[in-house]
Each structure stands twice: as structure tokens, then as C-alpha cells.
């Protein structure tokens, strides 16, 4: 082959190999190999490691929050509408923490499926609506009616 053309071919091959490597690695990373947090369903299904620091994210189940009377311990349930994880946390909860809101708790999962959080983060979601609409939606929110919430003891 003509050397100039061979050189160009080598370069083109290099570009193709590198770009496909980049694409392959990104798709590998995106195929669930980045764990931002475990959804409760995975925890219930036993996919989350026990006795290791993990994060669990989901919605706080309505009516599940129980505050202790003598210390700062709070117990609540987190759900993704497929599974529920019981969480206990000692400390001051963030202001935006509320029932029916999203949280991510980091901590350790015990063998009995309960989760001891060392940190709880909360954030408002991105729905904007007038108060009347919000009221109308209240009874219908998936977190309250359709979900078989378990009472924590």
C-alpha cells in the first residue's frame, strides 16, 4: 500500500478504536454501574450489601415518621412504591424532610433488613403547582392511597 495512505489508515483506525472505547466505557458506566443510591426494592430483594456503608433513596411513607420522646431518634419508612425499608436515624433532620418527600439516607443495612442512617438528606422535588391543585392532588398521591404501607413498631 502507498505509505501515505497506510499512514492515514492507521490514524483512522486509531480514532475508531479510541472512540468506540469511549462509547463502550460510557455505556458500561451507565448500565447501572454507578450507584448513586439503592432503591428500597433492591434492598428488599437482597441486592444491597449488608453491614457496609450504602445509600438508600426513596419517598418517606406518609404516616410512618415516629419521633422518639427522649432523644433525637426518628424512625421512618422509605419506599419506591415497590419495596419498603425501615430507617432509624439519630440527629437533627433537615427542614425539608417531610412525609411524602424524597430522601436519601446513608448508613448501614442490618441483616434483619433495617437501616441505621448516619445521614439523611432531603430535597424538594420539581413540581410547581398552585395550592388548589396541590390540595386536589393530595388524596390521589401514590404515597398515601395505593401503597400498602407497613406500620413500624
Amino acid at each position: 500500500m502507498h505509505p501515505k495512505r497506510k499512514q492515514r489508515l492507521t490514524l483512522a483506525l486509531l480514532v475508531v478504536v479510541l472512540s468506540s472505547a469511549a462509547v463502550g466505557l460510557v455505556s458500561y458506566a451507565l448500565r447501572g454501574n454507578i450507584n448513586l443510591f439503592y432503591p428500597p426494592a433492591d434492598v428488599v430483594a437482597g441486592k444491597a450489601p449488608i453491614d457496609r456503608a450504602i445509600r438508600v433513596g426513596g419517598m418517606v411513607v406518609e404516616g410512618s415518621v415516629q419521633r422518639s420522646e427522649h432523644d433525637l431518634t426518628t424512625r421512618f419508612a422509605v419506599t419506591d412504591y415497590d419495596g419498603v425499608v425501615e430507617v432509624s436515624y439519630t440527629g437533627i433532620l433537615p427542614d425539608l424532610f417531610a412525609e411524602g418527600e424524597g430522601v436519601v439516607a446513608s448508613g448501614v443495612l442490618a441483616a434483619d433488613g433495617s437501616f441505621r442512617a448516619t445521614e439523611v438528606l432531603a430535597k424538594h422535588d420539581e413540581n410547581y403547582m398552585p395550592p388548589e391543585v396541590a390540595e386536589a392532588l393530595q388524596g390521589k398521591a401514590p404515597g398515601t392511597a395505593g401503597y400498602p404501607g407497613k406500620d413500624s413498631g
Partner: peptide, 24 residues
């Protein structure tokens, strides 16, 4: 976005897209 999700929960959505009412 990922960085933020690691340190703060991104809005956890189970209802799909974030919604904004038509009047807004």
C-alpha cells in the same frame, strides 16, 4: 448532576417528568 446526586438527593421522581402547572 451525578456529583450532586451523591451528596444531595436529586429530586427523586417516580411520577416521571417534573411537572409545572399550565397556569405557571
Amino acid at each position: 448532576d451525578w456529583w450532586y446526586s451523591l451528596h444531595q438527593p436529586a429530586s427523586i421522581k417516580f411520577t416521571g417528568e417534573s411537572a409545572i402547572d399550565a397556569s405557571m
